[in-house]
Simulated scan of single mutants.
Amino acid sequence: MPSLLILFFMIIFLLESMAGIIQNGFIITVLGREWVRCRSLSPADTILASLGISRFFLQWATIFSNFYTYFSPTNRSIYTGIFWSFTNTTTFWFTTWLAVFFCVKISSFTHPIFFWLKWRISRFVPWLLLWSIMISALIFIPSFVKSYYIFQLPVTGNYSENTTVHSRIHAFQRHFFMPLHIFILLINFILVLVSIISLISSLCRHLGNMQDHNVCRQDPTMQVHITTLKSLCYFLLLYTSNVLPLIITATDSISVCSSRFWVVEILTYAGISIHPAFLILNSSKLRRVLKKMLHGHEAA
């Protein structure tokens, strides 16, 4: 049985995870109905729906993996960490493309390359999502191989051979798989950072044009810039809160039976659990459906 402190952290982790699952389920349901009705979604809604699906399964995979590992430490499953690796990587990529899409569509640069990208990024969205899934699968394959061999170790071979293979697998995990995973996440981080810098530069340029023409500061374009910039800054905080724990666990293994592990999990997934609410409130379509639901409950 877990101690009272660990049980307290488990409950907090479970509550925040369920909050994220409910919010992502709402996004999937609304956009899924839209797709069924119209047989298509806008590029932004396509990325948002993909992100909602990925996060929905990521949080279920995290819950199952953490609690299964804690309560059944001796019964190792091949699949507990594999699906988590896949959904975690796709979540990072889909979040990145959402940030890049907003940046490209809203920024007001006049460079030919940027102008070309602005008008064609909507066509690239399906390919970007497919490419993200393929990259995530490349992360998935070594994780599957590692888990499969660890699962087979007690069954075949003698003790010394098992120990040697086990140490080699863990060395592969520590020196190749985890650095590769962090490297890919850092690419996402850099793309979001570049998007933020570009949007700030575009906003400063727009403010300069407003001052030259004595335009009111309530200009809608400026408000869109500011709202999107806030969203991208949140993306950056989200990446930081997820990449740092991965680096910590890569350099210092934390036992699932320690309270420190659950604190790290709470901090890591707090952003993922809160962010869907931010996306819902900033989407006119999702916000409108949410208001109808709330008004319907009030009327009932």
Rank of each mutant, 00 (worst) to 15 (best):
M1E: 13
I6V: 15
I6R: 15
L7H: 02
F8M: 13
F9T: 10
F9K: 01
F9G: 03
M10S: 06
I12Q: 07
L14Y: 09
I22T: 10
F26P: 02
T29G: 03
S40Y: 07
A44H: 14
D45K: 11
T46H: 03
I47M: 08
R55P: 00
W60I: 14
F67K: 03
F67P: 01
F67M: 10
Y68F: 14
T69D: 09
F71H: 09
T74F: 08
T74W: 05
N75K: 11
S77F: 07
F86P: 02
F92N: 03
A99I: 03
C103Y: 10
F109Y: 08
I113T: 04
K118G: 05
W119C: 11
W119K: 13
R120Q: 10
R120C: 03
F124Q: 06
W127I: 15
L128T: 01
L128P: 00
L128F: 03
L130R: 09
L130E: 08
W131C: 08
I133L: 12
I135S: 11
I135G: 04
A137I: 15
I139M: 13
I139E: 13
F140V: 08
I141D: 11
I141E: 10
P142W: 00
F144T: 09
I150R: 05
I150V: 13
I150Q: 09
V155Q: 12
V155M: 14
G157P: 10
N158C: 14
H166Y: 11
H166E: 14
S167G: 02
I169W: 03
I169A: 03
A171E: 05
R174C: 06
F176W: 15
F177R: 02
M178P: 00
I182K: 09
I182S: 11
I182G: 07
I182R: 09
L186D: 05
F189S: 03
V192W: 02
L193P: 10
L193G: 12
I196G: 03
I196Y: 02
S198D: 03
L199M: 12
I200D: 07
I200V: 15
L207E: 13
L207P: 00
G208E: 12
D212C: 08
H213S: 11
N214R: 12
R217C: 04
Q218M: 14
Q218A: 13
D219H: 12
T221E: 14
T221N: 09
H225C: 10
L236W: 12
L237H: 02
L238D: 11
N242L: 05
V243A: 07
P245C: 06
T249N: 06
D252A: 07
S253P: 00
S253T: 08
S258L: 02
S259M: 05
F261Y: 15
W262N: 01
W262Q: 01
W262G: 00
V263D: 03
V264W: 00
E265S: 05
T268G: 03
A270P: 00
G271Q: 06
I272V: 12
I274Y: 07
A277Q: 10
A277P: 02
F278E: 06
F278R: 04
F278A: 07
V289Y: 07
L290S: 14
K292S: 15
M293K: 11
